[in-house]
């Protein structure tokens, strides 16, 4: 059975009122934020299921916005995240989608634009007790929790790219805990998600980016 830390039982430390609707929401946005390279300029949150029904009463909106500004689940600034975002010039809006019901009950799509104009649409789910996962990046289904040091490689679906990336990691002495590859269509956009016990360095990422089929990388340190 998987190890359960005492701090998963006595924890998380969090701004109330709900581990799934408040703490989970902050964690989802905080994880999605790390996929962006530049300062975030604008974000639209589309809420589904129970998130859409009850987000005001649970402060889900404040928590999502707070997470997008890097606030951890126990950061009391979550309470005032609307005011803080306005002060910092971060544009934000919320939409409730109550039509689409074939989704996990606590789901949010985040359309995030950074100052360089790059836009990513990221779907997150709050799966209980403050635990979260990202399940879609730009329409491609993925599965990603941020519990490990992680590297996301956006690349063209092309022979040899996976071999190239894993060879670089091997040379850099990175042990891969999990490796998952997702693609939209044959020869189209693909995502490789590498989760590792060791921290992955910037130099390793630079080496990976030398491959002509690699379009983008996102490096996320374990919490």
């Amino acid at each position: 059975m998987a190890f359960i830390s005492v701090f998963e039982v006595i924890g998380p430390n969090m701004v109330g009122p709900s581990s799934s609707h408040t703490a989970g929401a902050a964690s989802i946005a905080n994880l999605a934020r790390k996929l962006m390279h530049e300062k975030i300029k604008k974000v639209t949150f589309v809420l589904y299921g129970s998130f859409a029904q009850t987000y005001r009463g649970h402060g889900t909106d404040r928590a999502l916005l707070g997470g997008m500004m890097g606030f951890e689940t126990d950061d009391i600034r979550i309470r005032d995240s609307f005011e803080i975002a306005e002060k910092e010039g971060l544009e934000f809006s919320f939409e409730a989608n109550t039509v689409e019901t074939d989704v996990h009950p606590n789901t949010v799509d985040m359309i995030i634009e950074d100052v360089s104009g790059r836009v990513h649409t990221v779907r997150g789910e709050s799966i209980g007790g403050g635990k979260v996962r990202l399940t879609r990046i730009d329409g491609v289904k993925v599965h990603f929790t941020g519990e490990y040091h992680s590297l996301i490689v956006e690349h063209k679906d092309h022979p040899g790219v996976i071999a190239y990336v894993t060879t670089v990691l091997s040379k850099c002495k990175v042990n891969i805990a999990y490796l998952r590859v997702y693609r939209e269509t044959k020869g189209g956009v693909a995502y490789m998600i590498i989760e590792s016990d060791e921290e992955i360095t910037k130099a390793t990422v630079d080496e990976i980016e030398k491959n002509p089929f690699v379009k983008d990388t996102m490096l996320i340190k374990r919490k």
Binding site: V9, N13, M14, V15, T22, I76, I78, G129
Partner: peptide, 20 residues
Amino acid sequence: VNASMGVIVAAPTAGSAGVV
């Protein structure tokens, strides 16, 4: 505290955070 968006420790959840 929990219901007014203050900081609590889930134990094991936010809704049951008062007991322990």
